[in-house]
Design a protein around this nucleic acid. Structure first.
Length: 506
RNA sequence: GGCCCGUUCGUCUAGGGGUUAGGACAGGAGAUUUUCAUUCUUCAAACAGGGGUUCGAUUCCCCUACGGGCUACCA
């Protein structure tokens, strides 16, 4: 039992938006760290210069901020193990790569990408490994003087790990248990690229060691490269410091086969990114959960249920509750297909459970974006409470509440006109008079007097309710019509009846 | 192809040697709401197949099938 504090890390690559699987990995990292009183470290993997997208880091930080998954250490927050951006740690990796060469666990390779491509095309099952490494241009086949000369001349080269031909390596995964591999199956992975940047394999081991990472969570797609990492930990002499690993199940496409990808969102009509992502290189916009109207609470909730449960029938958890109840033993092994319908259900549940005050600024923003001006915040809170149970996504608040702040622009005339009569006009005139004499409007009492008046006029109340609703909101939607009138107030209700009457009777 | 991982209702899953195999989403029917939504009641819906082990297997073991991942100077 180590006395070392728990440190877990997540390292996204700034090559484009943050998708569902990415955020879920962050979430599990975060939950584990907080559960065990440790630190959640965020590192940036920007070693792929060809795919690096400027601005992606800010995007990642904003996503985490929106979700409330704030790292204890990051390029922004800093920490004792800085820098947290791999491109800024470039010099560190070379040293370790060369140490491996010296020890005979790695070697310089001078083959060009073109040569390797040709080999892959011409030789079936070509792998840069024990079977072919002796026939290629590397420090294993070249003499020491030749190698020194090439290095001195600045000949482009990479450093590759020398995988043992026949050796079994294994480890115990926190989710999957005992996993073992034969080292000869893997090729000699590049550790240090020609541009001097490390590959993931080298960087992840060096950084995890240097940053005292104790537990590492990543997607299942990394399982096959675990033997390379295992060997690196061993060769570098850090075996005892190796973190415990957990390989998370994948999030799958809802319909066909395979991992959920960015394309699936466009194809099936739902977001796969946390927030809108605009790629400057391609000019392409990928929609996000935030902009579609998801609450971060719901987003996190739906993510955590994709691969984890607390063993009870409960499905709604706040971030705090997740931290409390999270247990790595209850993470599933199998991949989960993403279901957008269920995702929306989580959001509607969270909207329903949220206090009006929590929703206020989001709703206000939605209304204002559509040109609805809200001056009365107290009214807005009451409106939110009245309509929130009818909203699934935040933008639904527009249709459900805009009419409280401005008169309907259009009426659903098709629903009233065919059945409209002069008697109904007379009734509403009488109703306006009645309202004028009323002190304050209250939903319940208003309904009583409305019905009583209808009876006096010899009209069934049912025939008047829909027209009344359309007068107030313009269409067939919204909560109880008398609750709407009560919130609108006497003056406004009368004004709307009057205006609508003109539209109905000509 | 090779290697690795996985497999309970359509989907997310609970369970675990003896259960009417439970819940949720979606779907069907009904009630309430003289809009729509909510809510409530209710129905339908699953242990991939074959061998073992066992008194007994959905649960443990093996094989097969299927699904997925990896097999880059990408992560």
């Amino acid at each position: 039992m180590s006395a070392k504090k728990v440190r877990v890390r997540f390292a996204p690559s700034p090559t484009g938006g943050l998708h569902l699987g990415g955020v879920r990995t962050v979430l599990f990292n975060y939950l584990f760290a907080k559960k065990h009183g440790g630190d959640f470290v965020l590192r940036i993997e920007d070693t792929d210069q060809s795919r690096y997208v400027p601005g992606a880091e800010d995007y990642i930080m904003e996503c985490l901020n929106w979700c409330g998954l704030i790292p204890d250490e990051s390029p922004v927050a800093g920490g004792h193990y800085a820098p947290y951006r791999q491109s800024e740690r470039k010099v560190i990796y070379r040293e370790y790569a060369e140490r491996l060469v010296m020890q005979g666990h790695a070697y310089y390779a001078f083959d060009t990408p073109e040569e390797l491509d040709r080999n892959r095309k011409e030789i079936p099952n070509f792998q840069y490994g024990h079977a072919y490494r002796d026939t290629l241009r590397n420090s294993l086949t070249l003499s020491q003087t030749q190698v020194d000369q090439l290095l001195k001349d600045g000949e482009p080269h990479v450093i590759r790990i020398k995988m043992p031909e026949e050796e079994t390596v294994y480890f115990d995964d926190m989710i999957r248990g005992h996993v073992s591999f034969n080292t000869g199956e893997s090729d000699d992975k590049v550790l240090l690229k020609a541009d001097g940047m490390p590959t993931y394999h080298l960087a992840v081991v060096v950084d995890d060691y240097l940053m005292d990472i104790t537990h590492a969570f990543r997607g299942e797609e990394w399982l096959p490269s675990a033997p390379v990492h295992l060997l690196l930990w061993e060769y570098l002499g850090w075996k005892d410091a190796m973190p415990q690993w957990a390989h998370l199940p994948l999030i799958l496409k809802p319909d066909g086969h395979g991992k959920l990808s960015k394309r699936d969102g466009a194809r099936l009509g739902f977001p796969v990114y946390a927030m809108n992502w605009f790629d400057e290189k391609t000019g392409e916009m990928t929609p996000g959960f935030r902009e579609l109207g998801f609450l971060p609470e719901a987003f996190l909730n739906l993510l955590v249920m994709l691969g984890w449960n607390d063993g009870s029938n409960d499905e709604i958890f706040s971030l705090d509750e997740m931290v409390q109840k999270f247990s790595i033993d209850r993470v599933n092994k199998g991949g989960a297909k993403f279901d957008f319908e269920k995702a929306k259900w989580f959001n509607s549940e969270w909207i329903k459970r949220s206090e009006a005050g929590r929703l206020k600024s989001e709703v206000k923003k939605i209304l204002e974006e559509k040109g609805v001006v809200v001056t009365d915040d107290a009214l807005l809170l009451k409106v939110i409470d009245l309509v929130k149970e009818r909203c699934t996504l935040l933008p639904d608040f527009y249709q459900q509440s805009a009419y409280f702040f401005e008169q309907p622009k259009e009426y659903d005339l098709a629903a009233v006109k065919p059945k409209w009569t002069d008697a109904k006009t007379t009734f509403f005139e009488g109703f306006m008079t009645m309202l004028g004499n009323t002190e304050r409007l209250a939903g319940e009492e208003l309904e009583q007097s409305f019905k009583a008046l209808a009876e006096e006029h010899g009209i069934k109340a049912g025939e008047l309710m829909l027209p009344f609703r359309i007068m107030l909101v313009g269409g067939k939607f919204g909560p109880h019509v008398f609750d709407i009138a009560a919130l609108l107030g006497k003056q406004e209700t009368i004004a709307r009846i009057e205006k609508a009457l003109a539209a109905f009777s000509n």
